[in-house]
Nucleic acid binder design. Structure first.
Lengths: 135, 135
DNA sequence: CGATAAAAGGAGTTTAATATCTGAAATAGA
DNA sequence: TCTATTTCAGATATTAAACTCCTTTTATCG
C-alpha cells in the first residue's frame, strides 16, 4: 500500500503502546491487549513472538504469563520497532525502491534528501513514551 | 509494504518523467518508455490508461500514436499523480490507517502533525520538472 | 481498401501480505 | 503430579496487489 508502516508494524506499535502503560514488570496477555486495541489476536501473537526473539519483549507461558517490555517505553523508538518487524529492508530507498540502487539512484533521491532525513530523525527520536497519551 | 508510493505509482511517476523529457506534443509509445525506464510494459500500460482517463495524459492508437502529457511537466505535481493512481484512499491517515478515524484519532496524530504537513507540502509542490534530472 | 501499429480492455495467473487454525510445549498453582 | 492457562511453531487459508496474455478497437500509411 502507500502507508508508512506496514499494517503488521502498526499492530506492533499499538500493542507495545499498551504494554508501556502497564505497571512495570506486569505481564499482559495477548487477549487483554487485543481487546483494548481492537487488533486481531492471531496476528498480534505472531508479531509479538518476533519481538520477543528480537529482545524487545519478555514472555512467559502459563498462568500469570504474558508479555512485558524489557526496557522502559522511553527507550524504545519507532525505528527499533520498525526494524524488528520489517527487517533491514526498511533501509532501502523509502521512495523509489523499484527504481533505485546505490549504483543508479532514483531521480528523486537528491531532491527529497532533507525530508527523508527528517523522517529518519523522527523515527529515531520518537519513543513509546512520547505517544503514550490516549487512546 | 512500507514504502511511500505504491509500486504502481512509482512506475507511473517514472513513466511520466520520461514523457516530460519529450519535445512538446510528441507522443511516446509504452514500449519506448518501458525500455528506457526498465518497467514492465503490461503494467505501465494499465496505469497509463488510468492516467489518460484522469485527464493527465492524451493518447492515440495507431501508427505515430502513443501517449503525451496534456500539461507541461511543471504543472503536474506528485500529488496529482498519486491521486490519479491510488485514488482518494491516500487521503486517510498516512501513519495508522488501521487504527485511526476522525472519531478516534490514533495516538500519533498530534505528535507528527508537523511532519505530516511537510510531506503534504512536498507532494503538492514537487513537479515532474523538479525531478527531470537524470536518469 | 488493406496492412500495420498502437492503445483499450477483459480475464486470468502469480506473488506477497494478512489472517487464521491447530497442536504442541512450558509454566504456575492446587 | 495434575490441570488450566498461556506462549510457541508450523501449516494453511484469505485477500489484495502486481503482472501477463489475448482480443478488440482505432488511427495511419501505402
Amino acid at each position: 500500500m502507500h502507508t508508512f508502516f506496514s499494517r503488521t508494524c502498526q499492530y506492533a506499535i499499538r500493542g507495545l503502546l499498551e504494554l508501556s502503560r502497564q505497571p512495570q514488570g506486569r505481564p499482559c496477555t495477548i487477549y487483554q491487549i487485543c481487546r483494548r486495541q481492537r487488533v486481531p489476536p492471531a496476528t498480534l501473537s505472531k508479531v509479538f513472538q518476533q519481538l520477543a526473539r528480537a529482545g524487545l519483549l519478555g514472555s512467559s507461558p502459563g498462568r500469570q504469563g504474558g508479555y512485558w517490555l524489557r526496557q522502559p517505553g522511553a527507550r524504545i523508538s519507532l525505528q527499533d520497532i520498525k526494524f524488528a518487524v520489517d527487517g533491514e529492508s526498511s533501509n532501502g530507498c523509502r521512495w523509489f525502491p523499484a527504481g533505485c540502487s546505490p549504483a543508479a539512484p532514483c531521480p528523486h533521491h537528491a531532491k527529497w534528501r532533507s525530508l527523508d532525513e527528517e523522517i529518519e530523525r523522527y523515527l529515531r527520536t520518537t519513543t513509546l513514551m512520547d505517544l503514550a497519551g490516549a487512546p
